[in-house]
């Protein structure tokens, strides 16, 4: 089981889950907030010191007003890295967290050992629309996040506590703050992706209805040496829907680059 800590960046406090020893691996979560600590994290924590912080504005809106856009969140995590003892970290980001990771890495990769992007937001590919998660009903959203509809039905059949519903709503507000417009991308990001000069991996579910895996080609064009792994039979949440396979992908990549 991971340890639950509170970390501080400047005057912002945030929850942090951590487990494992070894080189640090920082995971930046997606729009739905901190994911469950499942097989994916357990497998990574067997080899690395996994750090899973909650972004400011997620879980609680206490610090929401301090982060107005994705650039703010990228700068926040650069401050977070500056506050860590020396050495480099493996940076992994999913969806919105992948977008933050890419923004961070274009600004400064000096503290990064590698970059792994899982179904990242951040780029727009003309003619290939992203799904509209803000217009979908809660059921549509859940169904569209998974390839395997049995998994979606399991999620839908679980009762949601009042506390959990509040947390989901808080996260939805923060996701809208960061990603409503322009929807899920930064117009300037594509121009600067070439600045990412660390070993990089891209993982995408082939049945991602929120951010189509066809976007992978554009990422490949701009990041030198980017390796892409497509997970077949998988939706927008590879680290949840195909936890072991996705962890294996990441571990093989990290093994090769350390």
């Amino acid at each position: 089981m991971p340890q639950r800590l509170v970390h501080r960046v400047g005057t912002i406090e945030a929850d942090l889950l951590t487990e494992g020893d070894g080189q640090r691996l920082l995971f930046l979560h997606g729009a739905a907030g901190v994911p469950p600590w499942n097989k994916f994290f357990e497998l990574l924590a067997a080899k690395f010191q996994v750090l899973l912080p909650q972004h400011p504005g997620f879980g609680t809106d206490q610090f929401a007003s301090r982060i107005r856009n994705i650039a703010d969140l990228a700068m926040y995590y650069l401050d977070y890295l500056d506050g860590m003892p020396g050495g480099t970290v493996h940076l992994v980001g999913h969806s919105l967290g992948g977008w933050v990771a890419a923004e961070l890495a274009t600004r400064n990769c000096s503290r990064l050992a590698s970059l792994t992007l899982i179904a990242p937001a951040g780029l727009r590919v003309k003619g290939i629309a992203s799904g509209d998660n803000f217009i979908w009903s809660p059921e549509e959203l859940t169904r569209n996040l998974y390839h395997d509809q049995k998994l979606a039905e399991e999620v839908l059949s679980k009762p949601v506590t009042g506390e959990e519903a509040d947390r989901q709503l808080t996260n939805r507000f923060m996701a809208a703050r960061l990603a409503w417009e322009p929807r899920w991308f930064s117009p300037g990001l594509e121009r600067w992706l070439h600045r990412i000069r660390v070993p990089s991996l891209l993982i995408w579910g082939n049945d991602d209805k929120l951010l189509p895996c066809a976007y992978a080609a554009t990422w490949e064009q701009h990041i030198a040496g980017l390796k892409t792994r497509q997970i077949t039979g998988c939706g927008h949440l590879p680290h949840i829907e195909r936890a072991a396979e996705t962890a294996d992908c990441v571990l093989r990549f990290l093994d090769a680059c350390t």
Binding site: D61, F134, I135, W136, S137, G162, A165, D166, L169, T170, R172, F173, A175, A176, R177, W180
Partner: peptide, 29 residues
């Protein structure tokens, strides 16, 4: 309208949205 269209996140304050969502079960989709 469905609630997602009528009340997009941030259109009302978080606290009033939380109250609305608590009523949601009784209000329907």
């Amino acid at each position: 309208n469905p609630w997602e269209m009528l009340l997009p996140p941030g259109y009302t304050s978080l606290s009033s949205m939380k109250n609305t969502m608590k009523l949601r079960k009784s209000l329907g989709s």
